[in-house]
Computed example of a mutant assay.
Amino acid sequence: MATSVKLDSALQDRVQHLATTQRRSAHWIMREAIRQYVEREEARESFKQEALASWAEFQATGQHLTGKEVRHWVRGWGTAAETELPPVRE
């Protein structure tokens, strides 16, 4: 898929300068920037969807753990104090 992107001259100059200093092509710099942006936004959307699903489950069941319970449980990971997940509350 061939796509063109129009950049203003100031941004073009910045991309070209970066490409020169990193000994890469301007095309590589732009592809890498787009790849990183897409990965970051996909992760953000995944996190958002997971949070919405968790909220919907809480609203439906009322089951939850307090922040203090979760912090205590996580602090124990990899130590002699490691325990199973605490029982959820209603």
Rank of each mutant, 00 (worst) to 15 (best):
P87R: 15
L85G: 04
L11F: 00
Q49I: 03
S54C: 07
S54R: 13
Q59Y: 06
Q36I: 01
L18A: 12
L18D: 01
A81E: 10
H72F: 13
V88Q: 06
P87L: 15
V70E: 04
W77D: 12
F47C: 07
Q59N: 07
I29S: 02
W77P: 10
A56C: 05
G76Y: 07
L85C: 10
E69G: 08
G78F: 14
A53L: 07
E42H: 11
R31S: 12
L7E: 12
L7Q: 10
T83Y: 06
L65Q: 10
K68C: 15
A33S: 01
Q36E: 06
Q59G: 03
V38N: 09
I29C: 07
Q36V: 03
E42R: 12
E50R: 11
F58Y: 12
G62V: 15
H64I: 06
E84Y: 12
V15Y: 04
A81M: 11
V88I: 11
P86Y: 10
A56P: 01
I34K: 04
E32Q: 08
A60I: 02
D8E: 15
K6V: 05
L85F: 09
M1E: 15
W28T: 03
T61E: 03
L85V: 09
Q22D: 05
G78D: 02
A26P: 02
T3E: 14
I34F: 13
T83P: 00
E41V: 03
W73D: 05
G67M: 07
M30Y: 08
R71A: 13
T79H: 03
E39N: 04
Q59M: 01
H27I: 02
H64T: 06
V88S: 06
A80I: 02
P87T: 14
